[in-house]
């Protein structure tokens, strides 16, 4: 009888040892990205302008970095390490932002002309399009558009949208990584499973995120995504 009890205790103990929280590895590598976020067409002669940039690391998360700024012609436009540029001569120059990333050497550049006044690049009311596609065997599909309206992001899901009602805890996010909600912006729990509907996300720009990501929150499973 003692042997039986010992056997049972040993079995329970062994099982308990195996019941610790472990790690699941998520394949979340994406290409790094460096972008000048406040491009201008023209910089005023003897005017200054502060260029800004955004860096997304190799998991799509924004990181603050020290970008290396340079001008292709310092006699036309000079620029400091902080990104302060000044129009000092007539003509044009290429303004370059550079950064040695984790995986890649990143470069973004724009051409700027020196003129009478500083002029930002004219951005029309851009509407980006995308298609939601399932990455799982749950039904999830539909077209969508994204546009910036009065500083908010408007995500309009089209009439052809369908999502499975069987999966519990489905949430929708904005993300820069199609495989991870790390650094993502949670929009809402999904409450519409068929047809057109709209999400308005305050204080989010159209270039801040690249993917609409559907994620089963309780079981930490990606259900689908749509790039835009």
């Amino acid at each position: 009888m003692k042997q039986i009890i010992h056997f049972f205790i040993l079995a329970v103990f062994s099982i308990s040892l195996a019941s610790c929280v472990g790690d699941d590895i998520v394949n979340d590598r994406v290409a790094e990205e460096l972008k000048i976020t406040n491009a201008i067409d023209t910089i005023g002669f003897e005017s200054t302008y502060l260029f800004e940039s955004r860096y997304l690391d190799n998991v799509g998360q924004r990181q603050e970095i020290n970008v290396e700024w340079s001008s292709s012609n310092e006699d036309v436009i000079s620029i400091t390490n902080d990104g302060w540029a000044e129009g000092v001569g007539s003509g044009s120059a290429i303004i370059t932002a550079e950064y040695q990333g984790i995986d890649d050497y990143l470069i973004d550049e724009i051409e700027v002309v020196v003129g009478a006044n500083t002029t930002e690049v004219e951005v029309e009311n851009i509407t980006k399009e995308g298609t939601i596609m399932a990455s799982s065997f749950y039904v999830l599909e539909g077209a969508f558009t994204v546009q910036e309206v009065d500083g908010d992001l408007l995500v309009e899901i089209a009439e052809d949208y369908k999502a499975s009602t069987a999966l519990p805890g489905l949430y929708v996010y904005l993300s820069n990584n199609p495989n991870s909600i790390g650094g993502a912006h949670e929009i809402a729990a999904v409450s519409t499973f068929n047809g057109a509907h709209t999400y308005t996300i305050p204080n989010v720009g159209i270039d801040d995120y690249k993917y609409l990501l559907y994620f089963c929150k309780p079981f930490n499973v990606k259900v689908g995504d749509g790039a835009f």
Binding site: C20, V21, D23, D24, D28, N58, V59, G182
Partner: peptide
């Protein structure tokens, strides 16, 4: 028990 979701890229815990 539910496992940590760990980045395969940088080892950080995502969830």
């Amino acid at each position: 028990v539910i496992n940590n979701q760990v980045s395969g890229t940088n080892g950080s815990i995502i969830i």
